[in-house]
Structures are given as C-alpha cells and as structure tokens.
C-alpha cells in the first residue's frame, strides 16, 4: 500500500474529550479510503486524553490511532501543536490530511500548508476521490455560499479543513485496535496561553450545533432575548443573532451570524425578528431547514425560509416552546 493513499486525520480534543468532528472526519476518511484503497490514521493531540473514546474512533472507521498526549498540549498553543503535528506528518507521509474547520483547524492548517508546501482547501462540505487519478476532490462554498467550487491538488500534499456536522459518524466498523503513542517533541514558544476562559456564559458553539435559534432587532431589547434562549433550551440549540442585535449590545459578538460574524450550517435555523439582509443570509442560508418568524410579510428572510410565519414573535416563540414541552 503506497503511503500516498494514506489519509491522516488531525483530531481535536476539548478538555480531555475527543471532539465530535474527529469522529465525523474518520468516517468520511474511511469512506474515501474505500475508493483510493487507502488507510485512515487519526492523530489525537491533547492532554490526559480520554483513551476510552478511541474505541469509537475504530468503530467510526480508523485503521490506526496515534495518541500525542502532553501537558503542553492542554491549551491550543499553536507553536507546540505545529511542531508536533508537522513531525507526525513527516513520519506518516500521508497523501491526504484532513482537519475540522474549527478555530483549531483553521488556525493550524494554513501554517502547516506553507511549511509542507501543500494545497489547502478551507471549509469543505463535500469530499470525493477522482476516478483514475485517485486525487481528492474538495468542494467548498465561496462568496458566502453563492458559489461552490471543486478544488484539487494534483502534485502536492492534499490538505483540507472540513466543516463540522457535514459528515455522519458511522459506528459499524470492526477494525483492529491499533493504537500507538507519539512522543512529544519539546521546544520554545513565543506564545503563552495565560488563561483559557471557558464558561457557560461564553459558550456559543454555533458551528457545532444541529439547531440554532437566532434573534434580531425585532426582539426590541436585551431582556426579550429570553424568548430566544427559552426556545433554544427546549431544542437543545445554540443561540445566534443578527448584527443589529449584537450592535445594540443585547448579546455578545460571538453569537453573530453572517458575513462579519460566523457562517453556520445547522440542520435547522430559526430566525426570530430578523429581516434577512443579504449579509445575514450569506451566513445561514446553507442550513438544511430554515424557519422564519417576522411581522413583515415582505421581509427578505421569507425568500429563503422553508417555513415562514408572518406574525408576532412574542406570540409565536413562547407557544412553540410550550408545544415542544
């Protein structure tokens, strides 16, 4: 088996727990490896990694798991991460490297791509293997989803970051549990993470959620955001917002969806009191289903909504929350 067919997944830990996107990438990698006759190797960098979870990686389709466990990888110190991931890539010599299009993946992969002289395609939503050449075909949205492009890297290492929640996790593989450890390589870093602030208050998770409930200027004030949070809680959803709501100071910027905020692709997006300006739409119209509530029947959000209700959100949202009981 030529190493060119090897698919290396750069895994991700949040605290000690292996992040969902890693399992998604493993399953997609396993799917691709059927077409290129390759194998799927997962690197899991982190600290005090919950090794019980590796079981799930094999069920998802991994052929080999490499644990890279070190205290200095507890926080996302880019320099320590890069030094070690680069060493693993050099040792494994994969033909394809995949990482989640998460803040971690999108911080590290562009730097790896330069040093490895690799082609890097950001934020892919579809992957395939080209017949005949065995090359990775990477499809991604550009121009805020107005355009889709398929990209390949004919001569260099092929790297992609992949949107979380795009691929399904399989659990049916019964692979041999081949686990190895990579010894951490130490070095200096001009970066030092002084504190990793994590709190319920700061928890936004727009990119990781199947459902997002967003509020806009139609909410009228900060206190009214409660109707959004109540509905979101019932649906186990993340809370989003329009820029108007963020600029008004009703909710923090991390919640902003759209061109100057975050682009999201949940299964369901519920827009409450959002007009649906183009800059908002480019951040959310790739959702599988969109539900919109707006008083104004001419609001542009209805042009992209699968289910639109022309009415008062203060009547509708609480009733829906109630029904979801």
């Amino acid at each position: 088996m030529s190493t060119k067919n090897k698919i290396l997944i750069i895994g991700e830990c949040r605290e000690s727990s292996i992040h969902h996107v890693t399992f998604e990438l493993v399953s997609e990698g396993a799917e691709l490896s059927k077409k290129n006759n390759g194998e799927v190797v997962v690197l899991v960098p982190g600290y005090k990694i919950d090794t019980a979870q590796t079981e799930g990686l094999f069920k998802a389709g991994a052929d080999k798991v490499i644990l890279l466990d070190h205290e200095k990888l507890q926080q996302l110190n880019d320099v320590h991460y890069l030094r070690n991931i680069a060493a693993v890539i050099n040792e494994e010599e994969p033909g394809i490297v995949l990482a989640g299009a998460t803040p971690q993946g999108r911080s590290l992969m562009p730097k790896l791509a330069i040093t490895m002289k690799a082609g890097l395609t950001a934020d892919c939503t579809e992957l395939d293997i080209e017949e005949g050449t065995g090359l990775l075909l990477q499809t991604r949205p550009a121009f805020g989803g107005n355009l889709m492009a398929t990209i390949k890297t004919p001569k260099h290492l092929q790297m992609s970051t992949v949107r979380p929640k795009v691929f399904k996790v399989e659990t049916g593989y019964s692979k041999e549990k081949n686990i190895t450890k990579f010894t951490y390589i130490d070095g200096d870093s001009p970066l030092k993470i002084i504190e990793a602030v994590r709190s319920i208050e700061e928890m936004v998770n727009l990119a990781d959620s199947d459902i997002i409930v967003s509020g806009g200027r139609g909410l009228g004030d900060k206190a009214n955001f409660k109707v959004v949070f109540d509905l979101a809680a019932k649906l186990n959803a993340a809370v989003g917002a329009s820029r108007a709501a963020v600029d008004a100071g009703w909710i923090s910027y991390a919640h902003q969806v759209g061109q100057t905020g975050t682009t999201v692709m949940p299964k369901l997006y519920i827009a409450l009191g959002i007009s649906g300006a183009i800059q908002h739409q480019v951040g959310m119209k790739s959702a599988d289903y969109i539900i919109a509530v707006n008083k104004d029947s001419n609001a542009p959000i209805f042009n992209v909504a699968d289910y639109g209700i022309v009415g008062d959100l203060f009547e509708i949202a609480p009733k829906l929350t109630e029904l979801l009981g």
Binding site: A118, V304, Y307, I316
Partner: peptide, 26 residues
C-alpha cells in the same frame, strides 16, 4: 498547489411554506 476544477452556483434557495397568524393553530 491547488487547482479549481469546477465552479458552480448551488440552486438558489426558494421560499417554501408561508403562513400568517400567531394563534395556537398556526
């Protein structure tokens, strides 16, 4: 290193069901 093989516009999203009202039935 990268080559764009193909560019295409996804089918434009169209509005679906649209109803009016805020009573329980709606």
């Amino acid at each position: 290193p990268t080559r764009v093989v193909k560019a295409f516009t996804p089918p434009p999203k169209k509005g679906g069901i649209k109803v009016e009202g805020d009573d329980l039935e709606t």
